[in-house]
Design a protein around this nucleic acid. Structure first.
Lengths: 139, 139
DNA sequence: TCCTATGGTAAACTGTGTTTACTACTATGT
DNA sequence: ACATAGTAGTAAACACAGTTTACCATAGGA
């Protein structure tokens, strides 16, 4: 089995599970595209343009996503007082709640993996993936 | 760093790189959605419905994808003589060529990762991901 | 024969993302 | 001071992908 599938399949499974459990927990307006905003490290305090770059999409697409999340009450876009036309995204209470819920789901998943693999091997897996992250392999 | 991001980011990076290199290698009609068909274990010999299920999408969406790949000359959909209305997907020569190219790219990526992490740690990483795959963690 | 299940197909609708075009503010050069 | 270029954000038109709804074709029973 090649590394592509080995990474892709569990990553997708986690993504799907997060959306499903989020919907079940009362955040039922959220769907796949919104994950581009909610992904680590989260939008709180960031500029729309920065978020667009992180997600690998155009500023316009990100902006519409932010607009929908603002309509749903997850965040607000305030003017940034320091710089010209810039704006800053901030979570509302509900926004902080989803983000916390996502972390809860991920902690559950980590707990299950740890139980299956054993704590030592699971730690090893995370350590190796962290090294991939830190190296220039995924730039 | 939580397991979600640790898996998602490199998996996405690999996906993008595959598409980019495929385009550069002369397979320039291919874009992200086509990857749903070309993903492991590949469409050769499979039913449209099976491929839809694998990719987690509707049969109709998969069928249009197959139609476009057929138009581009990557595959054909023949009648399956054994069963009622069933059809079977088969690669054309060009289809086999892309699939081989994808494998080549993935082998390159594995080579780079092996060089960065060291052969032992890279093997360990793949072994751990294989265990995740084999366990019921991603079902 | 009629009913159901399965596999596939077609068209309308929805939403998502890019492209193109524009506004607002800042900084720089003359 | 003014013109210019650069940065950040926004808006509308467009293209495309995926779901929904509906339908056709074959096989296997009741």
């Amino acid at each position: 089995m090649l590394i592509g599938a080995l990474l892709r399949v569990p990553a997708q499974a986690i993504q799907r599970r997060i959306i499903k459990e989020l919907n079940a927990a009362g955040f039922d307006e959220l769907s796949m595209p919104h994950m581009a905003v909610l992904q680590f490290p989260g939008p709180d305090g960031a500029r729309p343009g920065t978020l667009a770059e992180r997600a690998g999409m155009s500023k316009q697409a990100m902006n519409r996503l932010l607009g929908s999340l603002e309509d749903f009450g997850y965040l607000v876009r305030n003017d940034a007082p320091d710089e010209g036309r810039a704006r800053v995204v901030h979570f509302t209470k509900r926004g902080h709640a989803v983000y916390a819920k996502i972390h809860e789901i991920l902690r559950d998943i980590e707990h299950e993996w740890r139980a299956k693999l054993g704590p030592k091997d699971f730690a090893q897996l995370k350590a190796l993936l962290s090294r991939v992250w830190e190296s220039s392999l995924i730039g």
